[in-house]
Amino acid sequence: MILNVWTVTAFFLAGVGALLAAAAAWIAIQGLASSARAHPERSGAGTNEDRLHLLALVLGVLAGVRLLAWPHFYLLLKSYVPELSSYGVMCAFGVTRIEPELVLAAQWIKPVLLTCLGFWLVHGVAVQRQTTQPYFARYALALLLALLALLDSGVEVTYLTREKIGSPVTCCTQFLDTDAAQGASQPVAALPGLSGVNWSADWRLYAGWNLLLIATCMLLARPRARGVTSLRSGFPLRVIVPSLLALGGLANLVLTRWIWLEDVAPRVLQLPYHHCVYELLTDVPALGFAAALMVAGNACLLWPLGLPSDSSVTRSIYALCAVALATGLLIVGVHVA
């Protein structure tokens, strides 16, 4: 185990997250027991309301703690580079080659957990005005999220306690340790891109897709805009449009990862053969912020699923997604230009 200030703070965040998750799980279990009674009305609606408010507070704080732990994890990886440099590690990606399964799990669980926590909290706000609330469903989902948060903290603690010194890393800055990957002789601008043409075509695809999502979100965020009322109220359009936007956001996450890996990282770092998103995010704080905005803007497109299409909550979500995507795209464009 490598012990430094980043490791200590990671232990702290994981411990606080685990305690909050355990508290949320206990509250959710009590709520499930109360909701599953033969005569749930005898337990009192006020009791369930108070318990849900307390649960929302705990899950909200948990979301904040795990939100801090997400970028902190990448800074933790970067802090290990000096200690592991003698074993072939040259950047944060090289650190991920040690215990890669744990690192991969930690990287995936955090955004999934944050997206689901946001979904639970947003839907809780949306159903407050309903005369009857799905208490059992909300408690069950909260329990699953609490268990996922416990898993997140457990995976991070396990990774922190594993011994990392002494594990050789044969390839740090390339994803594939092949002759073709090691023998690239052309600068990144001339390498074939996702569209099979060149970098500029890839960038046009990336920018165009984001602008399409931004424009659609802005259109749906307008209150009772002309031409949009029928789009929101008509079935199945009120189901199809949010679903297509959610799928478009997930596709944009895949596209964003590819463009940042193949084009943005080498250009911004001024290293044509260095395809390392990890170093890009930790060495250029503005792009780290842009990455968070792009992930949030795309992932939050999942939140309106199941919500009334013309509600103020839904419109606010689409407005925030449009702002996040536009800001992230602008930051990336400024650095690449």
Rank of each mutant, 00 (worst) to 15 (best):
R267I: 05
G297I: 00
T132H: 11
G306C: 10
A28P: 03
G17P: 04
Y139L: 14
A28N: 07
C276M: 07
C276R: 02
P168E: 10
L19W: 08
L19R: 00
L250A: 03
T173R: 09
S312F: 00
R226Y: 14
G234S: 12
A181N: 04
W6C: 02
C91N: 15
F289G: 09
L329H: 03
S185V: 06
L293K: 10
H39F: 09
E49R: 10
R66E: 07
A184H: 04
V103C: 06
L301I: 08
L117H: 03
L75A: 05
A63W: 15
A105T: 11
T131K: 04
L271A: 14
K78V: 15
A246C: 15
L261H: 07
A184F: 05
S167D: 10
A92L: 11
P272I: 02
V157P: 02
N4Q: 05
T115Q: 09
H72T: 09
R162T: 10
A36N: 07
R204Q: 06
P285E: 07
A10H: 11
A291S: 10
A10P: 01
G60W: 15
Y273N: 14
Q107E: 12
G249Y: 02
L59S: 08
A225L: 11
R204S: 10
C171D: 02
L305D: 11
A290R: 11
E99A: 12
R257N: 09
L281E: 08
G234N: 11
S316A: 13
G64R: 04
P40H: 11
M218T: 03
W199K: 08
Y278K: 04
T9F: 08
G306A: 10
W120A: 13
R267F: 05
L148F: 11
L13I: 13
V332L: 06
L102D: 00
C321A: 15
T158K: 13
Q107C: 10
H274V: 07
M218E: 09
L194S: 03
L253C: 05
T7E: 02
P304N: 12
K164L: 09
A190Y: 14
L77M: 10
L84S: 04
F11K: 15
P134G: 13
G333T: 12
N252M: 15
